[in-house]
Amino acid sequence: MDINSIKITIKNMYQFTNIQIDALNKKVNINGKNKDITLEKIEQLLGIIYLWKNEYIDNSKIDGESFKIEVMDNETVTTFKGKNKFPKNYNAFKKWVGEL
């Protein structure tokens, strides 16, 4: 796998979710709790987000939810972020997070 690490944050007024994936060592930290993660699971995430735009922002809405995903390989950091606007398969992403 070419990915080194992935950082995910999801914020809404009720909860903050912070996920840090160490792809090289197949470890994930979810809100402070460490566990193992399979390459398959990481690839599943990449398959969900790979065609996302870098930014989805709607500043005409207050409250709601914001997210940020940073994917780091050897050369680049690809960032996807959003606030109250989401890619159409965002539910698939939330489901993936829930299954972690």
């Binding site: 809404n12 007024m13 005409s60 809405k61 207050i62 409250d63 109250n84 539910n91």
Partner: peptide, 14 residues
């Protein structure tokens, strides 16, 4: 559709 993602409440200006 979006409000399934947006958390539980939102104020929006239209």
């Amino acid at each position: 559709l979006n409000s399934t993602y947006l958390g539980w409440q939102i104020t929006s200006v239209f």
